[in-house]
Simulated assay, not measured.
Amino acid sequence: MASPRLIELWPAAGVRIRAGGVEMRWIDDELAVDLALLAGNGVHEEGSMPFNSPWTRGSAREVGRSVLSFQWAARPHVSAKRLVLEFGVLIDGEPVGIQGASADDWSVLREVETGSWLGRAHQGRGIGSRMRALMLHFCFEAMHAEHVVSAAFTDNAASNAVSLRTGYELDGVQRVVREGVAATQTRYRMDRDRWLQVRAANQQLIGADVEVIGVEALLADLEPVEPAS
């Protein structure tokens, strides 16, 4: 866990979201290594690619290094202009994947985009829906977001199912390049009014009361800096 001195300097390091046996927290180096090793053991079937960037291609060591390099690069982006929050997901203390949210111009738009992955050994158990529901709770209830969006390739049945199960509404399609070939993604969106409609159903998915730690200091850190007069 992050030390009090680090949290004082970097409040994002102190953020934790807990509900029953599920915990999402800032990824320190020790947790990053655990998650890198988990990803090296597989995230999806060999013939598929659920991500825009094919970071899961290569040996276990290469995949693990991709996880580490991404996490290290993401850490500095905690500002009103560019916000990236990457949380390790733990079930009863065991790392199972990552749930993230990112935003540009957060202080103006109040909109974040979610993304996630689970180690293959932990898939098919409803964890993906629980951690997405927990992230939605965090974004709307703790961060006071106005919009949360997500996207998934049309051939990624699991991710599309999670978005629909947690209550996102369809927001069109987009064509992107995936490993050098055109592919189609389905977009999803949830605004605050929609969240209020589906909040109770998501609470049932979460299955326990939610505890959020450290968000007040993070929000204070995200206030836009007024230019000097």
Rank of each mutant, 00 (worst) to 15 (best):
T184N: 08
Q99M: 02
P76Q: 01
G115A: 15
E23G: 12
A60R: 15
Q204C: 10
S129N: 08
S59M: 12
I206T: 12
V212L: 09
E169K: 05
W10P: 01
A36I: 02
F138A: 09
L9C: 03
I27R: 08
V176I: 04
R175S: 06
V96N: 02
L85Y: 11
E223F: 08
G64T: 04
G115N: 09
R192M: 04
E86F: 07
I127R: 09
G42P: 09
I213S: 06
V112W: 00
L222D: 00
L90H: 11
A13K: 06
R61F: 07
P54G: 01
V215H: 08
S3A: 00
R82E: 07
A80L: 05
A201Q: 15
L219A: 00
A201W: 07
V78L: 12
V212Q: 01
E226R: 03
H44D: 04
S229L: 10
E179D: 15
P224Y: 00
R199I: 03
V198I: 06
I213N: 06
S66W: 07
L134P: 07
P95S: 06
L218I: 01
E113C: 06
E226A: 10
T186P: 05
W10D: 14
V67K: 02
E179F: 11
V63W: 01
T114M: 13
Q174W: 00
L196T: 00
A32H: 00
T56K: 10
A36G: 09
P50F: 12
A182L: 14
Q99P: 01
R65G: 03
R178H: 13
P227E: 12
H122G: 03
F140S: 10
L9P: 00
G128N: 14
Y168N: 01
G207H: 09
E45L: 12
F87Y: 15
R61Y: 09
L68W: 03
E113D: 08
M135Y: 08
S69Q: 13
G40R: 13
L35R: 11
S116F: 12
D92W: 00
V63G: 01
M135L: 13
A142N: 07
L90N: 00
A158H: 03
I98N: 09
R61P: 02
V148N: 06
W10R: 09
I127L: 14
E216Q: 15
R132A: 02
V63M: 02
E8P: 08
E211A: 14
V210K: 04
D191C: 10
A2K: 01
S79C: 06
A228I: 03
Q71G: 12
M143W: 13
V149G: 06
D221Y: 06
F140E: 08
E46K: 10
W106G: 07
G172D: 00
P54R: 02
R57N: 07
G20V: 14
L90K: 05
E46S: 12
D193Y: 11
V212D: 05
E111F: 03
G14A: 04
R192E: 03
H122M: 07
P95D: 04
S48E: 11
W55G: 14
Y188V: 00
L118P: 03
Q197D: 14
G128D: 14
L134R: 05
R130D: 02
V89R: 00
R175Q: 15
D191R: 11
S163T: 04
G128H: 11
E113P: 05
Q203C: 10
Q197M: 10
D34Y: 04
V84N: 01
H122A: 11
S59K: 04
A80M: 02
A183D: 13
G126K: 07
A161W: 06
H144Q: 08
G126Q: 13
